[in-house]
């Protein structure tokens, strides 16, 4: 059994997190094809997947590190960089686009100095353009953390986002 304290240290991963990560790896070690499941659970624990953690998962599951890195960069769910305190997901589905979500995105970018796919310098917001959320009845749609906001407009977004600090 691997022991995290002897092999890796990371400023963003606490002792408790390492224990949870070990449990996830131990549970899935013998399941074929469990890599994506393990990575999802580990990202839920830490918030993102730092390189040291990818290495750790690779050794834990006995998979080459290159393969783990390949999978991590292939799927949009995985993030290799830390996220802001609040994550804004703007839906880039066709219905939202036709109804003018681009204007809202431009306004968010300008107001909070955060580019699409990036995190603002003060770590307040991460802005992600995501694939269709399937809530086209509410288009244009924005999800902040777990809150869904429908029928947004360039004017409304700032009022909504100002409430998240």
């Amino acid at each position: 059994m691997m022991n995290h304290s002897s092999c890796c240290q990371h400023p963003d991963i606490t002792h408790g997190m390492w224990l949870d990560i070990d449990a996830v790896i131990a549970e899935n070690r013998n399941t074929p094809g469990a890599l994506i499941t393990v990575m999802r659970k580990c990202q839920n624990i830490v918030g993102y997947l730092p390189a040291a953690l990818l290495d750790y998962i690779a050794r834990g599951l006995n998979i080459p590190g290159s393969k783990v890195f390949g999978v991590a960069t292939f799927y949009s769910y995985f993030s290799l960089t830390p996220k802001g305190r609040n994550t804004i997901k703007v839906c880039m589905g066709t219905a939202c686009y036709v109804k003018g979500i681009k204007e809202s995105i431009d306004r968010i970018s300008a107001k909070y100095s955060v580019k699409e796919g990036k995190t603002s310098e003060d770590k307040r917001f991460s802005l992600e353009a995501v694939r269709c959320l399937g809530a086209c009845g509410l288009a244009p749609v924005m999800v902040v953390n777990a809150d869904i906001h429908g029928s947004i407009s360039a004017d409304k977004v700032i009022d909504i986002l100002d409430k998240y600090s």
Partner: peptide, 11 residues
Amino acid sequence: DEGDPGAFMDR
């Protein structure tokens, strides 16, 4: 894995 933008019947 309903991914087409604008399709939400499977969901």
